[in-house]
Design a protein around this nucleic acid. Sequence first.
RNA 1: GAGGGCGUAGCUCAGUGGUAGAGCAACGGUCUUUUAAACCGUGGGCCGUGGGUUCAAUCCCCACCGCCCUCACCA
Length: 479
Amino acid sequence: MSERDDRLQHLEALRRLDVEPFGNRFDGASSIGSVVAGYGSETEGKTATVAGRITAHRSFGKAAFLDLRDWTGKVQVYVKKDAVGEAVHAWFQHVGIGDVLAATGTLGKTKTGEITLFATSLTLLTKALRPLPEKWHGLKDPEIRTRRRYLDLIANPEVQQKFLKRARALMGIRRFLDARGYVEVETPMMQAVAGGAAARPFITHHHALDRDLYLRIALEIPLKKLMVGGLERVYEIGRVFRNEGIDTQHNPEFTMLELYHAYGDLRTMMDLVEALVANVAQEITGTAKLPFGERTVDVTPPWPRRDYFELIKTHADLDPSDEDALRAKLQDRRVETAGLTRIDLLDKVFGEYVEPHLVDATYVCNQPLEMTPLCREHRERPGLADRFEAYAGCMEIANAYTELNDPLEQRKRLVRQMKAAGDEMVREGRIDEDFLTALEHGMPPAGGLGIGIDRLLMIVTNSASIREVILFPMLRDES
RNA sequence: GAGGGCGUAGCUCAGUGGUAGAGCAACGGUCUUUUAAACCGUGGGCCGUGGGUUCAAUCCCCACCGCCCUCACCA
């Protein structure tokens, strides 16, 4: 007989006692956190009602202690036969760990000093037909934790707290941007051309139109069209989809913030992003020095501004213009260098030798222009991009440009990039002609910014894997 | 895609070439202030899936599936 069968028998027993095992709306419960936090001489002996899931059950026959947990906290409930009455006590025998219960009673402390609700009445809200993971060791199996996240959320309260932090962080970001005059917009996720980045897109099919569509890989192109349309400060927080590998820093769908600011430039974005990140860190953790694994990530503004080539020179100890030296450095780390362009080599050397040093929040500036077809060229230094990437915790968390608004130059750069990327890109990521047409109508000079929200949240919530900050990360089908 | 590790009860984990164990959870019992409640008793397993070796496989070998790590890929 499985535990499920046992619980089905309890279910029948409850029905025989005329107790509905799957209750309806329940009003009037206080949050457990507020009841516990507000406990004092004024509330002692007063009546309170709470509702939540039973996470522990210590029974003595005619009396029992329950741990009742809601999303604000946990409180002990004392259920005594004399206090709740014979009828309630009868059906209470069929209530167990995992069930959802409401309890009304008087607040007090037990002789061991624990704040306890001494129940006078109980309402069964939901009978659980399956057991909870074990109380002491919790739920550890990473596969069950992500595949059946609801169990993870119940069994590991800190996981629930983490996702509540995520929600608060998103609210905080919106409040921050709204206060500075930015307007949130929504643009299509299904696009005829997946532009704005160089990732491989997901393809889907629209039956009525009988055509393939791409899931967006970035937000950039439609948002810039809105800049042309005179929406001077826009942002979008939304899912983007990239058909690429999965690891601790990559999930096929992830959340990006992109933001554009008319009449601004790179410097506008620098001021903004460091204030935004520090603000989120402060709101969520109360500090700008964030514990992250073994280390601490300091996001206190102003962030140091470093030069891309100087960083490579310093940390890889070579001349960045010397391709052979770059190759040799990569081969030291057994990185395959065959067929790589100079830009690829630089990028890999940067990832291999520089990134591990970028613990505290840092701006990396003056990257080669070839990497960024949508970015304006540096005003004084031809060949370089007017761009920064923000790093923290050895991860790229933000990327910003002074946006390219010359439509003729933009066309050249997109064509060049497409040719460089080869046939596959030509097929999958054609040029968005309407984007170029829009630019020809005139886009004001602007600063633009992208933030990988999931990675930012990894740092803010001290999470080693992106899977820890995404409720339902991508998994293969269960076998 | 490559290499390595893992997969045993609902959960956390032991274990052995001879048909499987603990703790918690569950069920029955005693118990009206416990908190990993305690005590007595009971049930629960295609040992990831499929093949092979063997008298005999959960264990050894092969393949497959899934998860994790490292690498590759990755604006």
